[in-house]
Nucleic acid binder design. Structure first.
Lengths: 304, 304
DNA sequence: TACAACAATCGAATTAACCAATCAGGACGG
DNA sequence: CCGTCCTGATTGGTTAATTCGATTGTTGTA
């Protein structure tokens, strides 16, 4: 049996992959460039395969190198999790928890969530990042984040998820317009191009269109907004209607407007809110307790 | 950030956990007892927690120690998988594959399977263990086995599975008895205590009773057999009837007997055959290809 | 042509890993 | 009660591995 590679050398490899430069990677690891260089060579010998192609000036990770980086990342993350678990004496709700959240959920949930966590688990230190689903999944994969709050259904790749709750969509429009509309809303009652949506980077757009059975694309205005507050302002200016999730409404996004929420078409006009985490984690129990806290704050808790 | 524990020390811990004795563990690791002893102490310092309680004569793993062992096992298994993956240059179907299988499947599948694997993937070296479901799951958990072929449905704990195929049950009895019976068999046609089953350690018993809707337990003879061949012999001696899986019949278990297979009651009188593996593995692709080979050999391939 | 940037290599100094031998406590037997 | 055996811990010296600063060789650029 050949000797296992050392975690130290694996971490050198990760740093090199991240910085794409021996000097900067060495700095990040607090070692000299020569140490890191020989560490990598050492690793290549132990694994008996070439991880990076050198062309005298620079280098490139080989396909195998990339694969090894992937696996090394998982191993080191596991080791870190173990270290933290042991050092906190098994107290699961302690230490840093790096949370990623999409922008159509974050502003309407994270305030309440932080407060609740702070009260109930003061030793749990929540670090929050807000980004698109795709970027968050990448960060999760890279071990930069621990858990994500996403809207489902979604391709979460190799990760695992719990469905925390349902968040109904409402079709929001000016009260003067709403007076002429029957619920649940048949979109034929609306003029063409009268429905405004978010930029397509936001998964909310697709979820709303699918869940609310808005099949007639001529009703959609080609202008897209960058966030929910813009949508609300546009609707309040009587430009048209838009889909707003219940949790945003609960947080008062319609306050000081003349907008009213109507029930859209679709038997289940809602999105699911889920917690996504790496399949390889061993902090499932922490994440589970965390999931329960989140689910309690959602319009409809479906976490069993 | 504190220093990560070394894989070497973690492996010492695993050996100690396995052997429950410093000397034997040290031997297994090919190091001296003092090396292993200080390795463990080192680990405890790094993790800043007590892993074993010493009472001058012997020792005991603390609860935390047991937890750390669990996680260490996963980390080391991952590292071994990475090492092997790199050394085989990414060739997935190469090197050892440790397979566990239950005794009501093994004898009727593994012969054909070994032959097929040997032909198609000659570099894949199949190591086979046969045991009960519970023991196999324990071995999988301990990293002693890589994949299990089990009968489903089954509580596979934290592991993952693919359903490979269906294996119908047949009610087997002597042809003289069968002549008086209508298919699918209504058990009322059979005398009390005329159905023989395996010992309850075998999951086949429960699966057959459930799938074939044998609700009347008075039909079951309290004597239990240790393997399918015994059941066949007993049925052939006209002691009664028994459930035999199709794959055993296909492999000729009824040859040279006067037994005939009848269709039992139950809409889906069958068990599922599944491949079970650790959720934390990174050899999924290997296992998947392997799964396809197995599924091809089953009475009814349901692997999508 | 000189220079800056980069990764590899070298040699010395430091550190850690390791082992054999020994120690100390408890169990067992005579 | 004393000696022996078995346990894991400790010690001290040796060896092997790690690390660093300095240097080398190559490449691209001013």
């Amino acid at each position: 049996m050949s000797k296992l590679p050392s975690l130290k050398n694996l971490s050198y490899l990760l740093a090199l992959h991240q910085h794409q430069n021996f000097n900067r990677a060495a700095q990040a690891c607090h070692v000299s460039q020569s140490t890191l260089s020989s560490g990598i060579q050492n690793l290549e010998e132990q694994l008996e395969c070439q991880l990076i192609e050198r062309d005298h000036k620079s280098f490139l990770f080989t396909a195998m190198g990339e694969q090894v980086v992937e696996q090394a990342r998982q191993i080191i993350t596991s080791a870190e999790e173990m270290l933290h678990y042991a050092q906190s004496q098994g107290n699961q709700m302690e230490g840093p928890l790096r949370l990623g959240c999409i922008p159509t959920i974050g502003p309407f949930l994270l305030g309440k969530l932080s407060k609740r966590i702070q009260e109930k688990y003061p030793k749990l230190q929540l670090n929050i990042a807000e980004d698109t689903t795709a970027n968050l999944l990448q960060a999760l994969r890279n071990g930069e984040l621990d858990v994500l709050i996403l809207a489902l259904p979604m391709d979460i790749q190799g990760n695992q998820q719990w469905v925390l709750g349902r968040d109904p969509f409402k079709l929001v429009m000016h009260k003067s317009l709403a007076a002429t509309i029957n619920e649940p809303v048949d979109y034929d009652q609306l003029p063409d191009r009268s429905i405004f949506l978010l930029e397509k980077e936001h998964c909310l757009t697709g979820h709303a269109v699918a869940a609310c059975q808005l099949s007639d694309s001529s009703k959609i205005n080609p202008f897209t907004a960058t966030n929910l507050h813009s949508l609300v302002q546009m609707a309040d200016a009587r430009l048209g209607a838009t889909f707003i999730p219940q949790m945003a409404i609960d947080q008062g996004i319609l306050k000081d407007t003349d907008l009213v929420p109507l029930q859209p078409s679709g038997r289940e006009a809602s999105r699911d809110i889920g917690l996504v985490y790496r399949a390889t984690t061993n902090r499932r129990q922490t994440f589970r307790k965390f999931a329960e806290e989140i689910a309690d704050l959602l319009p409809e808790n479906t976490l069993k």
